[in-house]
Amino acid sequence: MAIYDARRRRSKFFLGLCYVFVAVGLGWLALILGTLLIEGFRGLSPAVFTEMTPPPGAEGGLLNAIAGSLIMTAIGVIVGAPLGMLAGTYMAEYGRYSKLTVVVRFINDILLSAPSIVVGLFVYEVMVVSMGHFSALAGAMALAVIVLPVVVRTTEDMLLLVPHTLREAASALGMSRSIVIAKVAYRAARAGLITGVLLAIARISGETAPLLFTALNNQFFSADVFKPMASLPVVIFQFALSPYKEWQQLAWTGALLITLAVLALSITARALQTQRNAK
């Protein structure tokens, strides 16, 4: 009986430890989000969306940074997503059983979690050095490199979920393979493919490291993709490390905006997927 009690106590102890970890781990994360909400909302005003980033010590907004982030994200997705979808299509449709697919899947999974700062160095070497100056285009390409593996992964996964019978039925009607893919497989997996793109956007909207030395920063509004451009994450980085109160406040507000955008995107993506599963 003594042994049994000891075992029970042991079990209670370790399971109690699990509860502690849950309380500490989730509490900690809740604390971070809570602080972010309080500090971020404190500085939220219409000026944030209508005024440019201010010089040190002055009031201002984040308009040029928000616009820059939107522009570079858009270009990054427009370049990265189609490439990723086509590669994913090859892996799920034409080359489902080929060796190349196994290798690409392995490498792609590694690229998925590779350090993003290395992507920045790569694009710097390839684009910034050859163009001779920093540019928004280089920043967008760095983001595209990060989009690519995310979209490859989800596209392949989603196309693999499309039932074989659908493809066979379409082929039996005499459709060629490319039409089967475009008209049947893509349509059946549409919600999943959109989910992948949304997740990719969520992933790059907070990326800072690859933009630091590709798009650099710009204190003024610019829509010229061949010039340096401001972006929310880089502005947050610069402003947070500054000694000026106004800049630090804007950094918190910017951080809040990014977090809200990322959460909205991930929740939409998740909702799309559950909707699909419910069907």
Partner: peptide
Amino acid sequence: GIPSIIFGIWGLFV
């Protein structure tokens, strides 16, 4: 999925 810069800014200020 929360960007790491959020953790960084919290670490610095709080």
